[in-house]
């Protein structure tokens, strides 16, 4: 190997940049909806009957409604069908102004506080879920494409270590179910590969739309571990690792899950 080749190899080894090879992704990638029953699959496909579309409808109204002190979302971003196409597929993303990685909900909250000069909508509030469902809907059918290098690499590494870390009284790591045992059965349900593509999703158990953070907290509850707070670095880092692991998988938000 020549000198230039050695330098390149060294740069690759020591740069710490996460590459596709670093991520152990399940093969083949299967969306979470494939692990649901035929009735749930039909409900998600039906654009009218999908109850998550109620939140999309509300989100569309909120998008156009001006804030008390500031502009409407549409005042800056215009037609969401154009301006928001593919945006949700690139989240979680590092935000230079905030100096940290945020997910879509976190980005909307930051935008409300900074641009609309109002109190950021609470995590898991109807308003925030409606807006994130509406924005996520604009990326339906597009493959997940998140960046895990550069400023996002620290969060990505944190997410990866969390994914492989045993937690809670059951002493289970995410990887044990979602890498090694997907397709198996747990409490009468089939174990999915744990992809974030269809989120936010309407969960029949919740009788409501919920964010991916809520779903992850439910998993923490399932293994009897302490649940991280909404918006905490741990949850966002996990979301980023999951998104990187599902790169190339197309989502159909809002999804429907049992």
């Amino acid at each position: 190997m020549n000198t230039a080749g050695r330098t390149l190899l060294a740069a690759l080894v020591f740069s710490g940049a996460a590459t596709r090879a670093d991520i152990i992704a399940p093969k083949p990638l299967k969306s979470g909806i494939e692990f649901q029953g035929a009735d749930v699959q039909a409900l998600q496909r039906d654009e009218f009957a999908n109850p998550g579309m109620l939140w999309v409808t509300r989100g569309e109204r909120l998008w156009k409604a001006p804030a008390a002190q500031g502009p409407a979302c549409a005042s800056c971003h215009g037609d969401a069908a154009k301006s928001m196409r593919g945006v949700a597929a690139s989240y979680p993303k590092h935000d230079a102004a905030l100096g940290r990685v945020v997910d879509l909900e976190g980005r909307i909250r930051a935008c409300a506080a900074a641009q609309q000069k109002r109190e950021a909508p609470a995590w898991e509030s109807e308003e925030l879920l409606s807006l994130s469902a509406f924005v996520a809907r604009q990326s339906a059918g597009l493959p997940i494409a998140v960046a895990v290098d550069g400023p996002a690499s620290a969060a990505f590494e944190r997410g990866r270590s969390l994914f492989f870390e045993r937690q809670g009284q059951f002493n289970l790591a995410c990887t044990q179910c979602h890498d090694r045992n997907w397709g198996g059965t747990l409490l009468g349900e089939r174990i999915s590969q744990g992809h974030p593509a269809d989120w936010p999703a309407y969960r029949l158990e919740w009788q409501s739309l919920g964010s991916l953070q809520r779903r992850l907290r439910a998993c923490y509850f399932g293994v009897r571990a302490e649940q991280p707070a909404f918006g905490s670095g741990d949850l966002v880092a996990l979301e980023l690792y999951l998104a990187a692991r599902a790169r190339g998988l197309a989502g159909a938000p809002p999804g429907v899950r049992k």
């Binding site: 009218f48 009957a49 939140w55 009788q207 409501s208």
Partner: peptide, 9 residues
Amino acid sequence: IKVLVQHPM
């Protein structure tokens, strides 16, 4: 006619 209503019931 199909109708879907958002309500917690």
